[in-house]
């Protein structure tokens, strides 16, 4: 059978997926724009291309975060269980991880949009 979603991973690191996507998105936007503004003619691109690039990267980042959200939602048990998830069982621990990851995915989603917004309004490097 083909799986739509990858198998559940038992690791602490999954908690950090969405914030890491945010960090990469942030870096790509900042470094990309900074290099363009420092070396405008580098690849023969104009600022519209930079904005488009930021748009594409943002869409990608949001898609990845949505995937992380979906996985987190599953790990949480699709909302079947309510917090505080403080039982001394691996089951409760997984629900906690899922819920915390879900919250972080939400925050990262908003933060990615925050960071992308300047590209909507600014049309040049403006020094």
């Amino acid at each position: 059978m083909i799986r739509l979603l990858p198998r559940e991973v038992e690791s602490l690191w999954t908690l950090f997926t969405a914030p890491i996507v945010w960090a990469l998105h942030f870096l790509i936007c900042y470094v990309g724009a900074a290099i363009y503004c420092a070396k405008p003619g580098l690849l023969g691109l104009d600022f519209a291309a930079v904005r488009l690039g930021i748009g594409i990267v943002t869409a990608l980042a949001l898609a990845l975060i949505l995937l992380s959200t979906l996985l987190a939602w599953r790990q949480w048990g699709f909302g079947t269980y309510d917090p505080p998830h403080d039982d001394a069982t691996a089951h409760s621990r997984r629900r906690f991880q899922g819920f915390a990851t879900l919250l972080l995915s939400g925050l990262s989603f908003v933060a990615v949009i925050f960071v992308a917004l300047p590209a909507v309004f600014l049309t040049e490097c403006l020094r």
Binding site: Y30, A33, C37, A111, V115, L117, P118, F121
Partner: peptide
């Protein structure tokens, strides 16, 4: 620095308030 760079950091600085 270019204002587009400043704006990224300004946005992130607002986001951290959440």
């Amino acid at each position: 620095l270019p204002q587009i760079s400043l704006a990224f950091f300004s946005a992130a600085s607002e986001a951290v308030a959440i």
